[in-house]
Each structure stands twice: as C-alpha cells, then as structure tokens.
Nucleic acid binder design. Sequence first.
RNA 1: UCCUCAGUAGCUCAGUUGGUUAGAGCGGCGGACUGUUAAUCCGUAGGUCGUAGGUUCAAGUCCUACCUGGGGAGCCA
Length: 512
Amino acid sequence: MSSSETEKYVYIDALGSREGQPITLKGWVTFRRDSKGIVFLGLRDGSGFAQTVVTQDQVSEETFALASELALENSVVVHGVVVRNERMNEMEVAVSGLELIQAGPEYPISRKAHGVEFLMDQRHLWLRSQKQWAMMRLRNRIVFAIHRFFQERGFLQLDPPIFTGNAVEGTTTLFETDFYGEPAYLSQSGQLYGEALALAHGKIYTFGPTFRAEKSKTRRHLSEFWMIEPEMAFYDLDRNMDLIEDFIVFVTQDVLEGCAKELAILERNLAPLQNVQKPFPRVTYEDAVSIIRGEKEVDGRNSLAVMQQDLDELKQQIAENTADIARREEAIATGSLKKGEINFNRSRIDQLIATNKELEEKTGNIPQWLESARNFPRGEDFGGSDETVLTRLFDRPVMVYRWPAAIKAFYMKRDPEHPEYVKGVDLLAPEGYGEIVGGAEREDNLDLLLHRIEEHKLPVEAFQWYLDLRRYGSVPHAGFGLGLERLVTWMAGTRHIREAIPFPRAYGRLRP
RNA sequence: UCCUCAGUAGCUCAGUUGGUUAGAGCGGCGGACUGUUAAUCCGUAGGUCGUAGGUUCAAGUCCUACCUGGGGAGCCA
C-alpha cells in the first residue's frame, strides 16, 4: 500500500482540478479490461464515473493480482495520481495501490442489452448504472428547481394529508386502507386542501406523493407518483397560465444549465428543450379540436398532412435500415470478416432490428391516429394520440384552455362569457409526451359549487369544510397540478415513466 | 375490464409444413495479448423450452385453460 501523507480522499467529480496530485477514491468497479501487464478499471463513486489504470511495472505484485481479479460492482479503495487521458480529454487515475472492501458473486447486470422486466426486477441494482444515475440526478435537479421557483416567488410549501376520509371524485381510482377501523383512502390529489392553505397563506404549493388505483399499463402512468400543486388566491385563469409558462421555462432552463452532463449521458436531443421559451401557444379547446380534425391550420400546416408526411418518412427510414441490415448480413455471409468485425456487425444489426421494431410500431399507429383525429368527437376529452397530433404542429409546449364543462371536474369555474365551458387549462408537452400539467380557476361561488357537487352526485356532507372556503371571504383563486415523473420523463427524453422514479409502483409492480 | 404481442441457457434471442442427442451471441470461468472504450484470439461449463391438461407413433412447435410480462384503450398528472 503506497498511501502517502499528502494524498486526499476525493470524489470523482473533483478530479478535474487535481491533475498531477496523489488522491484516494472509494467506489465500485464498473468494468475491467485487461491486457498483458495492464488493467483498466472503471470506477464509480456516486459523484461520477472515471477510468483508473493499473500498470504492472508500477505497482506491487499483490496489487496487480488484485486488479486482475476484480469484478463488476466489487467495492474498492483506489490510491493513485490524477493524470490526463489525452485521447479522451478526461481525467483518469494512475493507480499506485488498491484495497478490496468487498467482492461478491457475479453481478447480475452485465454491460449488454437487457429486457425491461429483468431490469425492473433488479431495480435496486439497476439504479447504479450510468443512465439511471443520470436520470435520478436530473430528477433531483428538477425537484430543486421547482422548490427554488416557488420559494423565490413567495410561495410556501405546505403538505396536504395523505389519508383522506372521502373520495373526491368517486372511489374507483383510490387505494382503500384501514384507518383505525374506518375506511380511508390514499390521496389522489392535495388540491382541495391546497385551496384551504392558499386562503390562509396567499400562495402555496404542495409537493407529495399521489396515489391512483387505475389499472393502467402504459408508458405514462404510475400508481404512486409525485405531484406539485400550486394554489394561489386572487389568481384567475390568465394569471394561472402565465405562472405555468414561467414555471416550465424556469425549470427547463435550469436543467439545461445544470444537467448538461446528465443530458449527454441520456443522449437527449437538446433542441426541443432549448425551444421552451415564452410565449407558449394558447389554444382554446374548440380550436384545438379543429386543428386535430384537420379543419384548421397552424402557420399554414395541416395536422393530418404533417402526420402523413411523418409516416412516409418513417417508412423510408425503415427501408433504409432494412437495406443496411441486408448489407451487413451479406458481408458476414461472405466469411471474409474477422471475428471482431462480425461481432460488431451483429451488434449493429441487433440495434437496427430493435429500431425498426419501434418504427414499425409507430407506422402501425399513425394511420389509426389519423383516423381517430379526423373523426374526433367534438366535446370529448383528448386521447394520447390526439395530444400527439396537436402538439406535432408546435415547437414548444401548448396550453389548451376553456374546456367543455361536462368532461372536467366539478370544482372548475365556469367561463362567464361561455357558460358551457370551464376555465381549465392543460399543458401538453411536445414530442408525444402529452399532458404534464392540468389546472384551473376554481369555482368560488358557494351556491354554484354546491350545485356542481349535487350534479356530480358527490356526498355534500363530506365537502362542508371545503364549502366553508366559499362561505368565509371567498375570493377568485386558481392553481394547477404537475406530474413530476411526467416532467422528468420528458426532460430526459426517455420512453417510459417508470425510469423517472427510483422505485416505481405501477399495476403489476410492487417489488423491489 | 377490454384489445394486442410475448414467455427457450445468467442475459438477448434463433429454432423451418410437428420428426434423431435444443442452437448462437453476449456474460461467466481458464489461458494469450502493455492503452482498452459493447470490435482481439484459443478453450470451457451452462437448459424441467412460463404452468397444467389435451391431440399425436412423435410436441419447444398444434389445441384449451391459467400465470407472468410488454404495448395500447378507458382514466388521468
């Protein structure tokens, strides 16, 4: 062990400023590649990933033997000197000594492709891998940005209860539990409590877990997710939309500034995020329907025509990939390639096949989307594909407002000038990510609200406390709900919401 | 709840109109190679084909039910 007195314990993310210095790292092995007389060890320590190099003629026999035996995810202490790897323009560590903290059996997750089910079963370990690491850091940054945005604007974060005594919008989507012998439900929204808090503190936001017992198996749903719900006294729908816009712009810019490394690891295309600038298009529900149905153009572009064009491009891409696959298979079949080249081509073929599978799924979907968009029934809520068709025509998030009252919640305020509509708003993210925010100005008139509760056949008794908010100094107020994991998924550019939360809970997934 | 696709080695998959003893790549292990980045070479171990029935001389392959998972609908953030 050659641990000098001057060497310091450091984290990998601090290596950049320590070139030439002796240091000690503690972490886990992420890969090992060895050749005669030299071993490359990948190391991660939570703060980042780095390569360390063990050269036989520079370390003791024991150290070199240990380096040659290390396996994935063995925990180790590494002593060495920080040097610049000129080829990669990255810092690496020239190892002088190694200590094994713990070895173990073969690590289940290899550095190769795995299926979703396998990885989800290994979620507790999968979190260690680079993309998942980047995703969780992105999530953390977003959470911090959300707090910063609201705190800097005088909002208080206050928590609603998680056990609730009554079902706000029917019991079918709620998890029932036993609360000292009385049925209680896990909260599906903190909004009603948020309203009470807003009338006490002016501007508040809640930030907590939310539970929905919907048996959804889609890439946009979780049974347990985190929701941010600001609520503001004296805000109308317009101010609410202004706030949503400022909020999304703030968080997006903060992520671009603070998570460049993470976004690079996630291979995120930055253009759609860089486009997130004020103002967002604001489209009424009725106009949105016209756009979806292809009856109204946006900047001279027709939704159905654009989707048709996308479909043609997809088909062309598939044809190109298929040709590429054929070329590579032919090259392998000639038998003149080296084994390495064969492996490389096989690996490329696998990738192309996987890509084509995805593209074919899309090409199969688009005709149905077009059909459903063309015949969209005015007055109904949008489906996932309708959101995609609509947002396709814009380069940034779209706000759809003034919704038909019949398809929205009882507490939304009617638009006085358009009594069949409510002053609600949904924010739809681009790139097919869909709804990430739902908000509204709330009904502040006692009689009207009471009427709505009765219309929706909800138990008035349970809402007496809520009605008190309209009895004593009722004021116009508004708020919205943001699904954290949906936001993280979109920012990360990831296909599935389950990767946006450390331990997802969804239909069919309770462990680990 | 409904529609749809799938379950074969530790992982990712192939397996022809049902036909001998079930295959590959990766990973593991053993060995070779002094700068590797999922691309080197040689060798090696590894399987109750999701479960239970059925059809058949013969089932990984066909039929039925169930289980588990993927994608989607509904509902939503």
